[in-house]
Structures are given as structure tokens and as C-alpha cells.
Design a protein around this nucleic acid. Structure first.
Lengths: 188, 188
DNA sequence: GGAAGGATGCGGCGTTTTGTCGCAGCCCCC
DNA sequence: GGGGGCTGCGACAAAACGCCGCATCCTTCC
């Protein structure tokens, strides 16, 4: 929308084990004029790194079954020091965000993230500007986002997600139906 | 837990505008054999920096009224490049954690944090270990913690906290009464 | 000292949301 | 074909919530 003309990277590495989500994301990014190289696991990503002549950006899913997407950051930056790396995750905790950033990630997003969100996160540098994120999140928003995360972490399984959330399955069902548009946040 | 014999820094800068909390923290850290230099705002902290011969660690409150504790990171690291800096905040969002880390913070904590938590955060390097805390949090627990944070951010003012949370004051009252001890952790 | 503004605790009461049933439809797999 | 698991949904009682009002207490400011 209003992330009008960010500098879309020419080449981007997408590390994501969910094939469906990967292809969606890939297509969305391609539509912005970005050549996306996709890998589904760490080994494939490492192998892919060696074949690429250049890489401007990378989007890494943190949760890759047995692998951890964070482990790609070091070898990636070793080969392409200028590459802008962001980490994507289903859950998303503060501790994990700190870990990712300390390893060299530029930003840290929680799913679901649109192509616009991703490009935005690649573009912006959270460190430099006098940016004051520190916003008072509403209870409902917090709940909704958390539900989405847990749901995602359980592959959309409502029954298990409800159990993990400590609420009844029926309640989760009703809540999910109630909120078709999760008040998608945006700024800038 | 096993934060038994962390390397307690000899000198520490504490930037915290809440005088009461500052003195408590100061005392707790001092009990661990740490010399604490306290500043209540950015200007005082900057002035304090120039007078110190050495500094091993710093604990910065992010929310300092008009000031932002993050703004001390750069000048602090410019003078003491080896100083271990952690940021403390009432709220604590992922975006803020990323911002703090990118500016050079070693870790990012949310209040309330005990002296043990602080020393632990100073000691540990969140980047290196394969540490994946990533636990499945319950909805109620998440809500409760968030409520506590917002409440704390508003100095315990129920009316304003309720407004910030987007719920009715009466509801907040009832909730607070319902949950007297939500696994309150602290010691030291 | 008294008035004014704001915060708190609490009692009701009508409305909304949850918890908990149960049941039917699906899909997968032994 | 018969489990076992997940899903969507109707129904109904129980709990929680929003919202009112009112009686305290505090400050703060005439």
C-alpha cells in the first residue's frame, strides 16, 4: 500500500520449510521485481549459497522442524557481508528476537507477514532512527496475535492450539470466526 | 537457579528514573559486590560517563519520561566499547528488543526483573548458545503478564491501565482480584 | 478550611462470551 | 469397514464483561 517504493532487493534468499507459504511468499516478492531463491532446509540453503554470485537480502524462517534458521545467519553473512537478513517466526519471543539480532539479523518478524511487511522490514533499520516503538498494545490485539502464533505453531490445528492456549476448542472456533480482519498493523 | 557464580561486574551504570526501584535495584546489585553508579535521566548519565574511569556493565531503563534510554547506548559504547549493556523496560515489544539489540545492547529484559535476572542477562550471551526458550505460553498467563506490565507502566493506576488495555475499569478490578498470585517470581 | 477533580472499591443488572455437552461430516490409516 | 482424530455447529447454563451509580478517600488548588 503505502510502502510505496522501497528499494526492493534484486536477489533474495527465502528459507522456509512450509512449501505452500514459501511459494506464496515467493510469488508475492517476485511481483515486486525480486528474484527469489528458495531453500526448504539448512543444508539446501548452504548449498544454494555457494552457487549464488550475489545476494542482497535473505528471509529466514526460524522454525524449520529440526533445524534453526538462525544458524544460517553466520555462514550467510560470511559469504555476503552486505546481505540484509531478516528472521521470520511463528512464535516470536523477545528472547528469540534478541538472539536473532545479535547474530546479525536486521529485523525480526512474526507470522503472518505479508510481502509488504517483509520488504518493509528489509528496508528499515530499526537501530538507527530515533524510532520509539514502545506502544501500548491493546489486550484484544495481544490475544489475537498470540492466538495466531500458537495456531500457526500447531499447523492450524484448532484442537491442539486450543489446548495449548488453555481455552476450550469451541471458544477458539468462535473467536476465530469473529475476527476476520486482525487489525493488521502498519506504520511508516 | 544455576546463576550461582556469574561474573558480577565491578562497576555498573544504572539508568532508571524511578527512584524507588532504582535504589532497590542498586542495593540488590551492591549485595552481589557490584559498585553501582546511578543516573535518573540521560543528561545525568552522560555527565556521569565522563567522570568514570572504567565501566563494565550498564542497565538502562528504556522508558525515562521524555528520554529514551536507548539513546545512551551509542555514547556509552563509544567511551567504553567493552561495556556490557542491557536494556530494561516496562512494556517490552519485539520491535523494541530488536532496536535495542541493533544499537548494541547485549540483552533486553522486561520488568519486573530481580537482581538475579539482571546479572544473568549481563552474563549470558543470547547470540551464541542454541538457546531456544520458545515455550508454549498459555493465554491466561500471557494476559496476566501483559496486564501487570501495563499496570506497572501506569504506576499502578487502574483506571488508566484499563483504558490503555482497552477494557473496562470494573473488569480490570475484578481480574486483579481474581488472580492474587500468578506465579510471581522474584527473589534476591 | 473547603471545593473540585480523580482514583478506588463495590453492588447490581442486562448483555455477551465461555465452558461443556452432543452430534454429524470428513479424512486417514491399520 | 471400523476406529481415531479434527472440524463445524446447535443448545443451554455458568461465568465474565460492560455499564451504571454511589460512597469513600486522596490530592490540589483556591
Amino acid at each position: 500500500m503505502e510502502s510505496a517504493h522501497v528499494t526492493v532487493p534484486a536477489s533474495l534468499l527465502l528459507l522456509e520449510d512450509d512449501e505452500l507459504l514459501a511459494s506464496q511468499t515467493r510469488r508475492a516478492l517476485a511481483r515486486h521485481g525480486c528474484q527469489v531463491h528458495w531453500a526448504a532446509d539448512l543444508a539446501a540453503a548452504r548449498a544454494l549459497l555457494d552457487t549464488l554470485p550475489a545476494l542482497e537480502a535473505a528471509v529466514l524462517d526460524q522454525n524449520l522442524g529440526a533445524d534453526n534458521g538462525l544458524d544460517l545467519i553466520a555462514p550467510l553473512l560470511a559469504r555476503f557481508p552486505e546481505c540484509r537478513v531478516i528472521v521470520l517466526t511463528g512464535y516470536g519471543s523477545i528472547a528469540a528476537a534478541v538472539a536473532a539480532t545479535r547474530r546479525g539479523a536486521r529485523n525480526y518478524l512474526t507470522k503472518p507477514a505479508s510481502a509488504g511487511d517483509i520488504l518493509d522490514a528489509l528496508e528499515r533499520d530499526p537501530g538507527e532512527p530515533g524510532a520509539l516503538p514502545e506502544a501500548p498494545p491493546s489486550l484484544q490485539r495481544l490475544e489475537w496475535e498470540h492466538i495466531q502464533r500458537v495456531l500457526d505453531a500447531h499447523q492450524g490445528n484448532i484442537s491442539r492450539a486450543a489446548q495449548a492456549l488453555g481455552i476450550h476448542r469451541r471458544t477458539l472456533q468462535r473467536r476465530l470466526k469473529k475476527r476476520p480482519s486482525p487489525t493488521h498493523f502498519q506504520q511508516d
